[in-house]
């Protein structure tokens, strides 16, 4: 199985990088955009007996290391390979 994890600054936390890129896009003429956020994608292969267990364990990995709960939120998907 493969896991793909997305980590972003939480909604209330200003993302200066996302804001700068959004401003650039707007200057290039893409005016119909807002709330551009830049996050991190983490891919890994996992070996658990079930998808449910993989989900549980990946959630733990996010909580314990991959995301900082004070400023970041995460979501993940488990894909059968």
């Amino acid at each position: 199985m493969k896991a793909r994890i997305h980590v972003f600054y939480k909604d209330g936390v200003f993302d200066p990088q996302g804001n700068t890129v959004e401003e650039s896009l707007k200057k290039m003429g893409f005016s119909r955009i807002k709330n551009l956020r830049i996050g991190r994608v983490i891919d890994l292969e996992v070996d658990y007996p079930s998808k449910e267990e993989a989900k549980r364990e990946v959630t733990k990995m996010c909580e314990k290391l991959l995301a900082n709960p004070v400023i970041e939120s995460f979501k993940h998907e488990i894909m059968e390979t």
Partner: peptide, 17 residues
């Protein structure tokens, strides 16, 4: 210290980048 939970809060990218 913040990452280990010994202090509250977190440190993020400088506003100016």
């Amino acid at each position: 210290l913040c990452e280990s939970g010994l202090l509250p809060g977190a440190l993020a990218r400088n506003l100016s980048l």
